[in-house]
Design a protein around this nucleic acid. Structure first.
Lengths: 228, 228
DNA sequence: CCGAGTTCTGTGACCTAGTCACGGAAGTCG
DNA sequence: CGACTTCCGTGACTAGGTCACAGAACTCGG
Protein backbone atom coordinates (compact mmCIF):
# COMPACT_ATOMS: atom_id res chain seq x y z
CA UNK A 1 0.00 0.00 0.00
CA UNK A 2 1.38 3.37 -0.91
CA UNK A 3 1.83 5.78 1.95
CA UNK A 4 1.79 9.15 0.31
CA UNK A 5 2.80 11.28 3.25
CA UNK A 6 6.17 9.63 3.81
CA UNK A 7 7.40 9.42 0.25
CA UNK A 8 9.44 12.59 0.22
CA UNK A 9 12.52 11.87 2.22
CA UNK A 10 13.02 8.13 2.38
CA UNK A 11 16.07 8.68 0.22
CA UNK A 12 18.04 9.92 3.18
CA UNK A 13 17.67 6.52 4.82
CA UNK A 14 20.07 5.16 2.25
CA UNK A 15 23.65 6.06 2.61
CA UNK A 16 25.02 6.70 -0.84
CA UNK A 17 21.82 8.06 -2.31
CA UNK A 18 21.81 11.31 -0.35
CA UNK A 19 24.31 12.81 -2.71
CA UNK A 20 22.13 12.34 -5.76
CA UNK A 21 21.36 15.60 -7.54
CA UNK A 22 17.92 16.93 -6.61
CA UNK A 23 16.60 16.35 -10.08
CA UNK A 24 17.39 12.63 -9.96
CA UNK A 25 16.05 12.33 -6.45
CA UNK A 26 12.76 13.65 -7.73
CA UNK A 27 12.79 11.22 -10.58
CA UNK A 28 13.58 8.35 -8.25
CA UNK A 29 10.76 9.25 -5.91
CA UNK A 30 8.33 9.79 -8.75
CA UNK A 31 9.34 6.60 -10.53
CA UNK A 32 9.08 4.27 -7.58
CA UNK A 33 6.47 3.39 -5.04
CA UNK A 34 6.34 2.30 -1.47
CA UNK A 35 5.04 -1.15 -0.72
CA UNK A 36 4.22 -2.94 2.50
CA UNK A 37 4.08 -6.64 3.18
CA UNK A 38 3.09 -8.59 6.25
CA UNK A 39 5.46 -10.79 8.25
CA UNK A 40 5.89 -14.15 6.60
CA UNK A 41 5.28 -12.89 3.08
CA UNK A 42 7.45 -14.26 0.30
CA UNK A 43 9.33 -11.19 -0.90
CA UNK A 44 10.89 -12.97 -3.83
CA UNK A 45 11.35 -16.53 -4.94
CA UNK A 46 13.06 -18.48 -7.69
CA UNK A 47 11.09 -18.57 -10.87
CA UNK A 48 9.07 -15.57 -9.89
CA UNK A 49 10.58 -12.79 -12.00
CA UNK A 50 10.66 -9.65 -9.93
CA UNK A 51 10.27 -6.37 -11.71
CA UNK A 52 11.52 -4.15 -8.92
CA UNK A 53 14.64 -3.44 -6.99
CA UNK A 54 13.66 -3.30 -3.34
CA UNK A 55 15.12 -0.88 -0.82
CA UNK A 56 14.05 -1.84 2.64
CA UNK A 57 12.69 0.94 4.85
CA UNK A 58 11.40 -1.04 7.82
CA UNK A 59 11.68 -4.61 9.02
CA UNK A 60 13.96 -7.43 8.00
CA UNK A 61 14.03 -9.94 5.19
CA UNK A 62 15.62 -13.34 5.57
CA UNK A 63 17.30 -14.70 2.46
CA UNK A 64 17.77 -18.43 2.39
CA UNK A 65 18.66 -21.19 0.04
CA UNK A 66 16.28 -24.10 -0.26
CA UNK A 67 18.40 -27.16 -0.81
CA UNK A 68 17.37 -30.16 -2.92
CA UNK A 69 17.09 -32.22 0.22
CA UNK A 70 14.34 -29.93 1.46
CA UNK A 71 16.39 -28.25 4.13
CA UNK A 72 17.21 -24.58 4.25
CA UNK A 73 20.39 -22.61 4.69
CA UNK A 74 20.28 -19.09 5.97
CA UNK A 75 22.33 -16.86 3.66
CA UNK A 76 21.93 -13.34 4.94
CA UNK A 77 19.49 -10.89 6.37
CA UNK A 78 18.45 -7.64 4.74
CA UNK A 79 17.92 -4.85 7.27
CA UNK A 80 16.25 -1.48 6.97
CA UNK A 81 18.58 0.74 4.95
CA UNK A 82 19.83 -2.16 2.83
CA UNK A 83 18.86 -2.95 -0.70
CA UNK A 84 17.94 -6.38 -1.81
CA UNK A 85 20.15 -6.73 -4.84
CA UNK A 86 19.18 -10.31 -5.41
CA UNK A 87 15.94 -8.99 -6.85
CA UNK A 88 18.00 -7.44 -9.63
CA UNK A 89 19.12 -10.95 -10.47
CA UNK A 90 15.46 -11.84 -10.78
CA UNK A 91 14.93 -8.72 -12.83
CA UNK A 92 17.49 -9.85 -15.31
CA UNK A 93 15.90 -13.27 -15.28
CA UNK A 94 19.32 -14.73 -14.70
CA UNK A 95 19.50 -18.48 -14.68
CA UNK A 96 18.03 -20.68 -12.03
CA UNK A 97 18.93 -20.03 -8.45
CA UNK A 98 17.35 -21.48 -5.38
CA UNK A 99 17.26 -18.60 -2.94
CA UNK A 100 14.11 -17.05 -1.64
CA UNK A 101 13.34 -14.07 0.56
CA UNK A 102 10.89 -14.11 3.43
CA UNK A 103 9.70 -11.09 5.40
CA UNK A 104 10.55 -11.80 9.01
CA UNK A 105 8.53 -8.86 10.26
CA UNK A 106 6.01 -6.54 8.68
CA UNK A 107 8.07 -4.65 6.17
CA UNK A 108 7.94 -1.43 4.21
CA UNK A 109 10.12 -1.00 1.17
CA UNK A 110 10.69 1.21 -1.83
CA UNK A 111 10.09 -0.64 -5.06
CA UNK A 112 12.07 0.72 -7.99
CA UNK A 113 10.70 -0.63 -11.24
CA UNK A 114 13.09 -1.99 -13.80
CA UNK A 115 12.58 0.99 -16.09
CA UNK A 116 13.48 3.56 -13.45
CA UNK A 117 16.34 1.43 -12.20
CA UNK A 118 17.83 1.09 -15.64
CA UNK A 119 17.44 4.76 -16.37
CA UNK A 120 19.15 5.81 -13.16
CA UNK A 121 22.00 3.37 -13.60
CA UNK A 122 22.59 4.86 -17.02
CA UNK A 123 22.45 8.46 -15.92
CA UNK A 124 23.95 8.63 -12.46
CA UNK A 125 27.42 7.57 -11.38
CA UNK A 126 26.28 7.94 -7.80
CA UNK A 127 23.41 5.54 -8.28
CA UNK A 128 25.72 3.11 -10.08
CA UNK A 129 28.11 3.20 -7.22
CA UNK A 130 25.25 2.58 -4.81
CA UNK A 131 24.16 -0.52 -6.70
CA UNK A 132 27.64 -1.94 -7.14
CA UNK A 133 28.46 -1.43 -3.52
CA UNK A 134 25.34 -3.29 -2.55
CA UNK A 135 26.40 -6.19 -4.72
CA UNK A 136 29.93 -6.19 -3.40
CA UNK A 137 28.68 -6.14 0.14
CA UNK A 138 26.63 -9.25 -0.46
CA UNK A 139 29.61 -10.97 -2.00
CA UNK A 140 31.89 -10.15 0.90
CA UNK A 141 29.19 -11.15 3.38
CA UNK A 142 28.98 -14.52 1.71
CA UNK A 143 32.77 -14.83 1.79
CA UNK A 144 32.87 -14.40 5.53
CA UNK A 145 29.89 -16.69 5.95
CA UNK A 146 31.74 -19.44 4.09
CA UNK A 147 34.81 -18.80 6.16
CA UNK A 148 32.75 -19.10 9.34
CA UNK A 149 31.05 -22.29 8.27
CA UNK A 150 34.32 -23.94 7.36
CA UNK A 151 36.58 -22.82 10.18
CA UNK A 152 34.54 -21.59 13.08
CA UNK A 153 33.34 -23.75 15.93
CA UNK A 154 29.60 -24.08 16.48
CA UNK A 155 29.62 -22.77 20.04
CA UNK A 156 31.40 -19.59 18.96
CA UNK A 157 29.00 -19.02 16.11
CA UNK A 158 25.97 -19.68 18.31
CA UNK A 159 27.19 -17.29 20.99
CA UNK A 160 27.69 -14.56 18.42
CA UNK A 161 24.30 -15.15 16.89
CA UNK A 162 22.51 -15.08 20.23
CA UNK A 163 24.04 -11.71 20.99
CA UNK A 164 22.88 -10.43 17.60
CA UNK A 165 19.36 -11.71 17.90
CA UNK A 166 18.71 -10.69 21.49
CA UNK A 167 16.09 -7.99 22.00
CA UNK A 168 16.61 -5.05 24.35
CA UNK A 169 15.70 -7.22 27.32
CA UNK A 170 18.37 -9.74 26.41
CA UNK A 171 15.91 -12.37 25.23
CA UNK A 172 16.10 -14.28 21.97
CA UNK A 173 12.74 -15.42 20.68
CA UNK A 174 13.46 -18.44 18.55
CA UNK A 175 13.14 -22.18 18.75
CA UNK A 176 16.22 -24.34 18.62
CA UNK A 177 15.14 -25.42 15.18
CA UNK A 178 15.17 -21.83 13.93
CA UNK A 179 18.60 -21.22 15.40
CA UNK A 180 19.77 -24.39 13.72
CA UNK A 181 18.55 -23.10 10.36
CA UNK A 182 20.28 -19.76 10.92
CA UNK A 183 23.59 -21.47 11.46
CA UNK A 184 23.10 -24.31 9.03
CA UNK A 185 23.25 -27.03 11.65
CA UNK A 186 20.94 -29.52 13.32
CA UNK A 187 18.52 -28.74 16.11
CA UNK A 188 20.17 -31.29 18.40
CA UNK A 189 23.48 -29.50 18.14
CA UNK A 190 21.83 -26.25 19.17
CA UNK A 191 20.06 -27.96 22.07
CA UNK A 192 23.28 -29.49 23.34
CA UNK A 193 25.29 -26.31 22.95
CA UNK A 194 22.63 -24.26 24.70
CA UNK A 195 22.53 -26.82 27.50
CA UNK A 196 26.26 -26.30 27.91
CA UNK A 197 25.79 -22.50 27.93
CA UNK A 198 23.12 -22.92 30.57
CA UNK A 199 25.41 -25.10 32.66
CA UNK A 200 27.92 -22.26 32.56
CA UNK A 201 25.24 -19.80 33.69
CA UNK A 202 25.28 -17.78 30.49
CA UNK A 203 21.67 -18.37 29.47
CA UNK A 204 18.35 -19.57 30.80
CA UNK A 205 16.20 -21.71 28.56
CA UNK A 206 12.47 -21.76 28.09
CA UNK A 207 10.23 -23.03 25.36
CA UNK A 208 10.78 -20.80 22.35
CA UNK A 209 13.17 -18.41 24.01
CA UNK A 210 16.68 -17.99 25.33
CA UNK A 211 17.32 -15.42 28.06
CA UNK A 212 20.87 -14.15 28.15
CA UNK A 213 21.98 -13.93 31.77
CA UNK A 214 25.74 -13.84 31.36
CA UNK A 215 26.47 -11.75 28.32
CA UNK A 216 30.12 -11.33 29.21
CA UNK A 217 30.75 -15.05 28.92
CA UNK A 218 29.08 -15.21 25.55
CA UNK A 219 30.95 -12.17 24.36
CA UNK A 220 34.27 -13.62 25.42
CA UNK A 221 33.53 -16.81 23.52
CA UNK A 222 32.33 -14.93 20.45
CA UNK A 223 35.46 -12.85 20.42
CA UNK A 224 37.51 -16.03 20.17
CA UNK A 225 36.83 -15.71 16.45
CA UNK A 226 37.32 -12.07 15.60
CA UNK A 227 40.32 -11.76 17.90
CA UNK A 228 42.41 -14.51 16.35
CA UNK B 1 52.15 -7.42 -22.87
CA UNK B 2 49.80 -6.22 -25.54
CA UNK B 3 49.33 -8.58 -28.43
CA UNK B 4 48.21 -6.30 -31.24
CA UNK B 5 47.23 -8.93 -33.76
CA UNK B 6 44.59 -10.55 -31.58
CA UNK B 7 42.90 -7.48 -30.19
CA UNK B 8 40.18 -7.22 -32.78
CA UNK B 9 37.81 -10.01 -32.03
CA UNK B 10 38.30 -11.02 -28.46
CA UNK B 11 34.87 -9.59 -27.81
CA UNK B 12 33.25 -12.62 -29.38
CA UNK B 13 34.74 -14.79 -26.65
CA UNK B 14 32.30 -13.22 -24.23
CA UNK B 15 28.74 -14.22 -24.53
CA UNK B 16 26.63 -11.15 -24.00
CA UNK B 17 29.07 -8.72 -25.52
CA UNK B 18 28.68 -9.92 -29.09
CA UNK B 19 25.47 -7.96 -29.44
CA UNK B 20 27.09 -4.63 -28.64
CA UNK B 21 26.71 -2.08 -31.44
CA UNK B 22 29.83 -1.87 -33.57
CA UNK B 23 30.61 1.63 -32.39
CA UNK B 24 30.76 0.54 -28.75
CA UNK B 25 32.76 -2.54 -29.60
CA UNK B 26 35.35 -0.25 -31.14
CA UNK B 27 35.37 1.94 -28.10
CA UNK B 28 35.73 -1.05 -25.81
CA UNK B 29 38.64 -2.42 -27.80
CA UNK B 30 40.30 0.98 -28.03
CA UNK B 31 39.76 1.77 -24.37
CA UNK B 32 41.12 -1.45 -22.96
CA UNK B 33 44.29 -3.39 -23.26
CA UNK B 34 45.36 -6.99 -23.14
CA UNK B 35 47.55 -8.10 -20.30
CA UNK B 36 49.38 -11.31 -19.59
CA UNK B 37 50.51 -12.70 -16.28
CA UNK B 38 52.49 -15.81 -15.41
CA UNK B 39 51.13 -18.70 -13.41
CA UNK B 40 51.24 -17.96 -9.71
CA UNK B 41 50.83 -14.21 -10.10
CA UNK B 42 48.56 -12.39 -7.69
CA UNK B 43 45.81 -11.06 -9.94
CA UNK B 44 44.20 -9.03 -7.20
CA UNK B 45 44.40 -8.83 -3.46
CA UNK B 46 42.74 -7.05 -0.59
CA UNK B 47 44.04 -3.58 -0.07
CA UNK B 48 45.42 -3.38 -3.54
CA UNK B 49 42.91 -1.18 -5.33
CA UNK B 50 42.49 -2.47 -8.84
CA UNK B 51 41.73 -0.02 -11.59
CA UNK B 52 40.55 -2.49 -14.15
CA UNK B 53 37.78 -4.93 -14.75
CA UNK B 54 39.36 -8.13 -16.00
CA UNK B 55 37.86 -10.35 -18.68
CA UNK B 56 39.75 -13.59 -18.85
CA UNK B 57 40.83 -14.77 -22.30
CA UNK B 58 43.07 -17.67 -21.43
CA UNK B 59 43.91 -19.64 -18.31
CA UNK B 60 42.17 -19.80 -14.94
CA UNK B 61 42.18 -17.69 -11.82
CA UNK B 62 41.54 -19.15 -8.42
CA UNK B 63 39.69 -16.88 -6.00
CA UNK B 64 40.13 -17.74 -2.36
CA UNK B 65 39.49 -16.30 1.04
CA UNK B 66 42.39 -16.06 3.42
CA UNK B 67 41.01 -16.73 6.87
CA UNK B 68 42.27 -15.16 10.07
CA UNK B 69 43.62 -18.52 11.13
CA UNK B 70 45.93 -18.51 8.14
CA UNK B 71 44.11 -21.15 6.21
CA UNK B 72 42.47 -20.66 2.87
CA UNK B 73 39.05 -21.44 1.48
CA UNK B 74 38.56 -21.88 -2.19
CA UNK B 75 35.66 -19.71 -3.33
CA UNK B 76 35.41 -20.06 -7.06
CA UNK B 77 37.41 -20.33 -10.23
CA UNK B 78 37.34 -17.83 -13.08
CA UNK B 79 37.65 -19.52 -16.45
CA UNK B 80 38.40 -18.13 -19.88
CA UNK B 81 35.29 -16.31 -21.04
CA UNK B 82 34.38 -15.22 -17.51
CA UNK B 83 34.81 -11.80 -16.05
CA UNK B 84 36.32 -11.24 -12.68
CA UNK B 85 33.70 -8.98 -11.14
CA UNK B 86 35.40 -8.95 -7.80
CA UNK B 87 37.89 -6.52 -9.27
CA UNK B 88 35.04 -4.07 -9.63
CA UNK B 89 34.65 -4.27 -5.89
CA UNK B 90 38.31 -3.29 -5.65
CA UNK B 91 37.68 -0.55 -8.18
CA UNK B 92 35.04 0.95 -5.97
CA UNK B 93 37.36 0.56 -3.02
CA UNK B 94 34.57 -1.11 -1.16
CA UNK B 95 35.32 -1.96 2.44
CA UNK B 96 37.73 -4.60 3.55
CA UNK B 97 37.35 -8.06 2.18
CA UNK B 98 39.77 -10.90 2.47
CA UNK B 99 39.65 -12.57 -0.92
CA UNK B 100 42.52 -12.71 -3.31
CA UNK B 101 42.95 -14.02 -6.84
CA UNK B 102 45.83 -16.16 -8.01
CA UNK B 103 46.63 -17.08 -11.59
CA UNK B 104 46.66 -20.86 -11.70
CA UNK B 105 48.14 -20.94 -15.17
CA UNK B 106 49.68 -18.35 -17.43
CA UNK B 107 46.80 -16.07 -18.19
CA UNK B 108 45.79 -13.52 -20.77
CA UNK B 109 43.03 -11.07 -20.00
CA UNK B 110 41.40 -7.91 -21.21
CA UNK B 111 41.80 -5.08 -18.75
CA UNK B 112 39.03 -2.52 -18.93
CA UNK B 113 40.03 0.61 -17.07
CA UNK B 114 37.60 2.20 -14.68
CA UNK B 115 36.95 5.11 -17.03
CA UNK B 116 35.98 2.91 -19.96
CA UNK B 117 34.00 0.59 -17.72
CA UNK B 118 32.01 3.44 -16.26
CA UNK B 119 31.37 4.99 -19.62
CA UNK B 120 30.11 1.74 -21.11
CA UNK B 121 27.90 0.97 -18.14
CA UNK B 122 26.33 4.38 -18.59
CA UNK B 123 25.81 4.11 -22.31
CA UNK B 124 25.00 0.52 -23.09
CA UNK B 125 22.14 -1.54 -21.70
CA UNK B 126 23.82 -4.59 -23.18
CA UNK B 127 27.04 -3.95 -21.31
CA UNK B 128 25.07 -3.31 -18.11
CA UNK B 129 23.30 -6.57 -18.49
CA UNK B 130 26.64 -8.29 -19.03
CA UNK B 131 28.04 -6.88 -15.81
CA UNK B 132 24.99 -7.59 -13.70
CA UNK B 133 24.77 -11.11 -14.98
CA UNK B 134 28.38 -11.67 -14.03
CA UNK B 135 27.65 -10.48 -10.51
CA UNK B 136 24.53 -12.56 -10.21
CA UNK B 137 26.36 -15.61 -11.41
CA UNK B 138 28.95 -15.22 -8.68
CA UNK B 139 26.24 -14.83 -6.10
CA UNK B 140 24.41 -17.94 -7.22
CA UNK B 141 27.68 -19.87 -7.42
CA UNK B 142 28.37 -18.96 -3.81
CA UNK B 143 24.86 -19.99 -2.84
CA UNK B 144 25.35 -23.45 -4.23
CA UNK B 145 28.82 -23.66 -2.71
CA UNK B 146 27.36 -22.94 0.72
CA UNK B 147 24.66 -25.48 0.13
CA UNK B 148 27.29 -28.07 -0.80
CA UNK B 149 29.48 -27.34 2.18
CA UNK B 150 26.60 -27.63 4.59
CA UNK B 151 24.72 -30.58 3.21
CA UNK B 152 26.90 -32.59 0.89
CA UNK B 153 29.09 -35.47 1.93
CA UNK B 154 32.83 -35.15 1.42
CA UNK B 155 33.19 -38.24 -0.75
CA UNK B 156 30.53 -36.97 -3.13
CA UNK B 157 32.15 -33.56 -3.35
CA UNK B 158 35.60 -35.03 -3.87
CA UNK B 159 34.38 -37.36 -6.62
CA UNK B 160 32.78 -34.45 -8.44
CA UNK B 161 35.87 -32.30 -8.08
CA UNK B 162 38.18 -35.01 -9.35
CA UNK B 163 36.08 -35.37 -12.48
CA UNK B 164 36.22 -31.61 -12.99
CA UNK B 165 39.93 -31.33 -12.52
CA UNK B 166 41.02 -34.33 -14.57
CA UNK B 167 42.95 -33.57 -17.73
CA UNK B 168 42.20 -35.28 -21.03
CA UNK B 169 44.13 -38.35 -19.93
CA UNK B 170 42.02 -38.69 -16.81
CA UNK B 171 44.76 -37.55 -14.47
CA UNK B 172 44.41 -34.93 -11.75
CA UNK B 173 47.65 -33.13 -10.95
CA UNK B 174 47.25 -31.97 -7.39
CA UNK B 175 48.47 -32.89 -3.96
CA UNK B 176 46.04 -34.00 -1.30
CA UNK B 177 46.68 -30.69 0.41
CA UNK B 178 45.57 -28.75 -2.65
CA UNK B 179 42.44 -30.84 -2.98
CA UNK B 180 41.76 -30.22 0.68
CA UNK B 181 41.97 -26.47 0.11
CA UNK B 182 39.63 -26.69 -2.85
CA UNK B 183 36.99 -28.39 -0.79
CA UNK B 184 37.67 -26.59 2.45
CA UNK B 185 38.68 -29.69 4.36
CA UNK B 186 41.79 -31.28 5.85
CA UNK B 187 44.44 -33.15 3.93
CA UNK B 188 43.91 -36.25 6.05
CA UNK B 189 40.27 -36.42 5.03
CA UNK B 190 41.27 -36.29 1.38
CA UNK B 191 43.92 -38.97 1.91
CA UNK B 192 41.46 -41.27 3.60
CA UNK B 193 38.71 -40.71 1.07
CA UNK B 194 41.09 -41.26 -1.84
CA UNK B 195 42.33 -44.45 -0.17
CA UNK B 196 38.74 -45.63 -0.11
CA UNK B 197 38.28 -44.71 -3.78
CA UNK B 198 41.44 -46.65 -4.56
CA UNK B 199 40.16 -49.66 -2.65
CA UNK B 200 37.08 -49.54 -4.86
CA UNK B 201 39.26 -49.44 -7.97
CA UNK B 202 38.13 -45.96 -9.02
CA UNK B 203 41.53 -44.26 -8.85
CA UNK B 204 45.23 -44.97 -8.69
CA UNK B 205 47.35 -42.81 -6.46
CA UNK B 206 50.83 -41.46 -6.97
CA UNK B 207 52.72 -38.60 -5.44
CA UNK B 208 51.11 -35.41 -6.65
CA UNK B 209 48.56 -37.03 -8.93
CA UNK B 210 45.38 -39.04 -9.03
CA UNK B 211 44.68 -41.22 -12.06
CA UNK B 212 41.00 -41.89 -12.65
CA UNK B 213 40.59 -45.54 -13.62
CA UNK B 214 36.91 -46.04 -12.90
CA UNK B 215 35.16 -42.88 -13.94
CA UNK B 216 31.75 -44.52 -13.91
CA UNK B 217 31.97 -45.20 -10.20
CA UNK B 218 32.96 -41.64 -9.45
CA UNK B 219 30.22 -40.33 -11.69
CA UNK B 220 27.62 -42.44 -9.99
CA UNK B 221 28.72 -41.17 -6.61
CA UNK B 222 28.83 -37.55 -7.78
CA UNK B 223 25.34 -37.83 -9.16
CA UNK B 224 24.11 -38.79 -5.73
CA UNK B 225 23.96 -35.02 -5.16
CA UNK B 226 22.46 -33.54 -8.28
CA UNK B 227 19.97 -36.35 -8.62
CA UNK B 228 18.36 -35.99 -5.21
C1' DC C 1 75.53 -41.63 -6.70
C1' DC C 2 75.05 -40.01 -1.73
C1' DG C 3 73.08 -37.82 1.87
C1' DA C 4 70.57 -33.84 3.87
C1' DG C 5 66.55 -31.41 3.50
C1' DT C 6 61.91 -30.89 1.92
C1' DT C 7 57.46 -32.26 0.49
C1' DC C 8 53.93 -35.52 0.32
C1' DT C 9 51.31 -39.36 2.04
C1' DG C 10 49.49 -42.89 5.50
C1' DT C 11 47.79 -43.92 10.02
C1' DG C 12 46.11 -44.13 14.82
C1' DA C 13 43.93 -41.68 18.60
C1' DC C 14 40.86 -38.40 19.77
C1' DC C 15 37.26 -34.76 19.52
C1' DT C 16 33.41 -32.07 17.34
C1' DA C 17 29.45 -32.09 14.85
C1' DG C 18 25.64 -34.21 12.18
C1' DT C 19 22.19 -38.15 12.06
C1' DC C 20 18.75 -41.24 13.77
C1' DA C 21 15.47 -42.75 16.90
C1' DC C 22 12.89 -42.04 20.55
C1' DG C 23 10.32 -40.16 24.64
C1' DG C 24 8.64 -36.81 27.27
C1' DA C 25 7.29 -31.85 28.26
C1' DA C 26 4.75 -27.89 27.04
C1' DG C 27 1.52 -25.56 24.60
C1' DT C 28 -3.28 -25.59 21.67
C1' DC C 29 -7.75 -26.39 20.83
C1' DG C 30 -11.86 -29.04 20.44
C1' DC D 1 -9.99 -33.02 30.04
C1' DG D 2 -8.07 -35.48 26.27
C1' DA D 3 -6.16 -35.50 21.48
C1' DC D 4 -2.84 -33.22 18.86
C1' DT D 5 1.07 -30.56 17.72
C1' DT D 6 5.24 -28.39 18.62
C1' DC D 7 9.35 -28.16 21.05
C1' DC D 8 13.08 -29.98 23.72
C1' DG D 9 16.43 -33.56 25.80
C1' DT D 10 19.19 -37.64 25.25
C1' DG D 11 21.75 -41.80 23.88
C1' DA D 12 24.02 -44.31 20.20
C1' DC D 13 26.25 -44.02 16.07
C1' DT D 14 28.79 -42.02 11.93
C1' DA D 15 31.35 -38.54 9.34
C1' DG D 16 34.66 -35.50 9.42
C1' DG D 17 38.28 -32.37 11.51
C1' DT D 18 42.63 -32.24 14.60
C1' DC D 19 46.98 -33.71 16.34
C1' DA D 20 51.08 -36.22 16.33
C1' DC D 21 54.14 -38.80 14.10
C1' DA D 22 56.56 -41.89 10.71
C1' DG D 23 57.97 -43.24 6.48
C1' DA D 24 58.11 -42.64 1.39
C1' DA D 25 59.26 -39.86 -2.48
C1' DC D 26 61.32 -36.19 -4.58
C1' DT D 27 65.25 -32.27 -4.84
C1' DC D 28 69.61 -30.72 -5.07
C1' DG D 29 74.31 -29.67 -3.87
C1' DG D 30 78.34 -31.96 -3.69
Amino acid sequence: MTVATTTENWIDNFEGLGKLPAELKDELVAGSKIVEMPAGAQVFAPGQSADNLLLLLKGTVRVQQKSETGREVFLYRVHAGDSCVLTTACMLAFEDYAADGIAETDIRAVAIPRRTFDDLVARSPIFRSFVFKAYSRRLTDLFTLIDDIVFQRMDVRLAARLLELADDKGVVHATHQVLGNELGTAREVISRTLAEFQRRGWVELARGEVRLTGRSGLERLARASTAA
